[in-house]
Every structure is written in C-alpha cells, then in structure tokens.
C-alpha cells in the first residue's frame, strides 16, 4: 500500500537527516574556531530548541499543563533522576486535569 510506503519513506528520510546531523559535526567545525558570539549562539541552540518544542504545551494548552510544568521544573532543579522528574510531572498533570 502507498500509505505504508510513505510511512517507511518518511522513517528512512528521518534516519538520513538525523545521521547527517550526527556525522556533520565531524566535518563541519573542523578548522573553524568556534568562539565569542558564535559560540554563545551555538551553546544556546539546544536549550532554545528544546524550549520551543514544549512551549505550546506548557504555555498555551491550559492551567493544568502550565502548573504541572512548573511543578516539573521544581523537581528538575532538585536534581532528581530524570525518570522521577517525569513521573512527578505526569502525576501532577493527571491530578490537575481532574481539578480543572
């Protein structure tokens, strides 16, 4: 079925794009001195992208999600293991959804 073909094609293309990012670093930055403003920008890229991914869920879904996110931030800064942070966040959102 063409449906399945499109699915597999998308998966393969995702894999190729991802591998490109993984091996790209071997060649891209070779000989380039990354410092100053460029380094500050590159250092900020991962957190900026991760934040952008979750922003709509956290800010624009509802009070349950926003408050649960704040509780999760608290758990994260307590340096709990990642799985505990996730469990606290999930438990919080379930409880808060029942409230709101």
């Amino acid at each position: 079925m063409s449906d399945d073909l499109l699915t597999v094609a998308t998966i393969v293309a995702m894999a190729a794009a991802t591998y490109l990012t993984r091996i790209g670093g071997l060649y891209l930055m070779r000989g380039v001195s990354v410092k100053g403003r460029l380094k500050a920008a590159l250092d900020a890229l991962p957190p900026a992208v991760l934040m952008a991914v979750i922003a709509p869920t956290v800010l624009a879904t509802g009070p349950a999600e926003t408050i649960a996110a704040l509780i999760t931030v608290g758990a994260a800064f307590l340096r709990l293991p990642m799985i505990a942070v996730v469990a606290i966040g999930v438990a919080a959102v379930v409880a808060l959804r029942a409230l709101f």
């Binding site: 499109l6 699915t7 094609a9 998308t10 293309a13 995702m14 794009a17 991802t18 490109l20 990012t21 993984r22 091996i23 790209g24 670093g25 071997l26 891209l28 930055m29 070779r30 990354v34 590159l42 250092d43 890229l45 991962p46 992208v49 991914v53």
Partner: peptide, 26 residues
C-alpha cells in the same frame, strides 16, 4: 497523509544539536 518534508525538516532541526556534540566529540 504523512507530511514527509515537514517531519524530515523538523527532525533535522530538533537534531541540529548533534552537530555541536559531534564537533566536540570528533
């Protein structure tokens, strides 16, 4: 239908951090 291009471009963007990690690891 699966938005192939959008998903692949987004995948690349989410994974762009690998470039930096790879540049350091190499």
């Amino acid at each position: 239908p699966v938005p192939l291009l959008l998903i692949v471009v987004t995948t690349f963007i989410v994974n762009v951090r690998h470039l930096l990690m790879g540049a350091s690891l190499q």
